[in-house]
Design a binder for these strands. Structure first.
Ligand SMILES: [Mn+2]
Ligand SMILES: [Mn+2]
Ligand SMILES: [Mn+2]
Ligand SMILES: [Mn+2]
Lengths: 239, 239
DNA sequence: GAAATAAGTTAGTATGCCCTAACTTTTACC
DNA sequence: GGTAAAAGTTAGGGCATACTAACTTATTTC
């Protein structure tokens, strides 16, 4: 009868499980900028059956991490967003630390971080960040959320969308596919690299790029995974 | 009907879960030197109900990790022992790395390692070990198993068992209780320290130690958690 | 060696997270 | 705006891991 005897249901006090953290990250990534995330999209990202997502999403909504409207997708609550960003910070600090302090190649940090992000304490993550000089981006150029939960949400243009003749600086590449990362490395399409779109063949044809003094040609599927900060240069943006 | 269609039951190929790894470590620790581990003792170490241990132990035996005789405890099989030592290596390398490379205080490495040991890949652990110069012991003096699964199993004397007048070098202290570790640190009872037993009061009374040029007095409960390598010195071992 | 105690097991239940199959709701299209 | 396709949910399981309560086996004690 006394309230003190009841299950103490302070939401957000108990540590989240690894699956829960991965759901929140996925939902954050899909709905970045407050959009809603669809069940099927979550399922695809996490390689789960849609039915599994329906179940989990309901539990997360009960815990106050999501706003869920049946048949209409989910959105992170403020509490869910904070949790997502905490995991994202862990993930990216760990990636940066592995690359910087332990010589991990950039194509293998993601997989390792995907597990460690659920096991590392805040203190460890903070020590890692301090040791490598508080980096602002991970090895793939993704911004690292701060401890207080803010993050740069600038939306960049993909190389696939950059106009012919335009130039940009590579700011970020997709981090999940090791083979793709190795290939980008070979082409030295790396964060910081300046690139100009020379031509684009029709019907999803190859995109020819000027990078340094070489000319390289990539498909649009690859180009779409490279984000650039456009530069206003001689060629302008007409295309 | 074809054997190839059957569930492929190659034992020891699928990665072990965190609980399983912790069971194996506990069983190894209890039965070090091939003794058997009792259900209640496993339960106590892992802070679980004995009934839970009965259940888990059966599954582990089915997987070939344990030899289990109902009502008579368990022993690690060769495969179980290998798995236990792999986890132990991870745990101890991680502890050493946290202390050495990230400035973690020795009283907090254990808890962090207890989680990371299940998430770190072999490659990460090997890189950590290489980075800090392939240490042979963790920060509490426990020997680090090698990659091929061998480990120094020397049994040391506890300070509680050292004869009055005898001296020894501290080789290892219990690693689980942070408060105890902080206290030992204050007393500078650390691995490498040379200590002489000056006197021992009866009825579990205090043990007086000479350490450096100071004299300190500790209870037998604490002394039992400090392992020493006895020195044959002037005082000898009579006591 | 029988009774008392300690140790260990089984039965039954819970929770988290996943699955497939069958159903319902939404949406897209003519 | 009715129907087909797509998207999403529910129903019904499975497995791993834990718990408590009740029972069984082993050990200790007199
Ligand atoms: Mn990543
Ligand atoms: Mn993850
Ligand atoms: Mn430890
Ligand atoms: Mn552990």
């Amino acid at each position: 009868m006394s309230a003190a005897r009841e299950e103490s249901r302070v939401p957000g006090r108990e540590p989240l499980t690894a699956p829960v953290e991965d759901y929140l990250k996925a939902i954050y990534a899909i709905g970045r900028g407050s959009g809603a995330a669809a069940t099927n999209e979550i399922a695809q990202r996490l390689a789960l059956a849609p039915a599994s997502v329906s179940g989990m999403v309901r539990r997360l909504a009960d815990q106050g991490l999501l706003a869920y409207e049946r048949y209409h997708g989910v959105k992170l609550t403020e509490s869910g967003r904070r949790a997502a960003l905490r995991t994202l910070r862990r993930h990216r600090v760990i990636e940066a630390y592995l690359a910087e302090a332990l010589g991990y190649p950039w194509d293998r940090v993601h997989e390792e971080a995907e597990r460690l992000e659920h096991a590392a304490s805040d203190e460890l993550v903070d020590r890692m960040a301090a040791t490598i000089g508080e980096p602002e981006v991970d090895p793939h150029g993704a911004p690292i959320p701060t401890k207080d939960g803010s993050v740069d949400e600038t939306e960049y243009t993909s190389l696939a969308d950059l106009a012919v003749g335009a130039s940009g600086v590579v700011v970020r590449v997709a981090d999940e596919d090791p083979e793709m990362l190795r290939y980008l490395g070979e082409l030295s399409i790396l964060p910081g690299k300046r690139i100009t779109v020379r031509s684009r063949a029709p019907y999803d044809g190859p995109i020819t790029l000027g990078s340094g003094r070489q000319e390289i040609s990539i498909g649009p599927a690859l180009a779409s995974h490279v984000l650039v900060a456009p530069l206003a240069d001689r060629a302008g943006k007409r295309g």
